[in-house]
């Protein structure tokens, strides 16, 4: 069965860049959301296995999504994808339950390494 992936970012270009960086040989179905609210809707509507989550977004930002997921004890692999690559932002995201932190601009190699490392993809 294919893995369901949700790409959350307010920038259409950023979503495009991320989708392009996803491994071609990974059996997935991809959904997109452009803010935290949409992400939570998509999450609640069906199953999401892996979420690529931007941090700065209007309406509901990445940190709020992490907070909600944690509060409701929902399980899902969240990989934070952010332009803010300061150590503090990274630590904060990881502290809130993200399994990994990828800095923008994303590249295929980086994504693959992360996916391998956490056994999301073999």
């Amino acid at each position: 069965m294919s893995v369901s992936v949700l790409v959350v970012d307010d920038s259409p270009i950023a979503r495009k860049m991320l989708r392009k960086a996803l491994p071609a040989d990974w059996d997935i179905t991809v959904q997109e959301a452009c803010n935290g609210q949409e992400a939570m809707l998509a999450y609640r509507a069906g199953k999401v296995d892996v979420m690529f989550l931007d941090l700065t977004m209007p309406t509901m930002d990445g940190f709020q999504v992490l907070e909600t997921l944690q509060a409701e004890d929902l399980n899902c692999f969240v990989i934070v994808v952010s332009a803010d690559v300061q150590p503090l932002a990274r630590e904060r995201a990881l502290g809130m339950g993200a399994i990994a932190f990828v800095s923008k601009p994303v590249n295929a190699e980086g994504i693959r390494t992360v996916l391998r490392e956490y056994g999301v993809m073999v």
Partner: peptide, 17 residues
């Protein structure tokens, strides 16, 4: 414009770092 926005976003992130 979308591309510039995202690129500015990333550039700014790097600058911040």
């Amino acid at each position: 414009t979308d591309a510039l926005q995202e690129i500015a976003n990333i550039g700014m992130g790097q600058a911040g770092d």
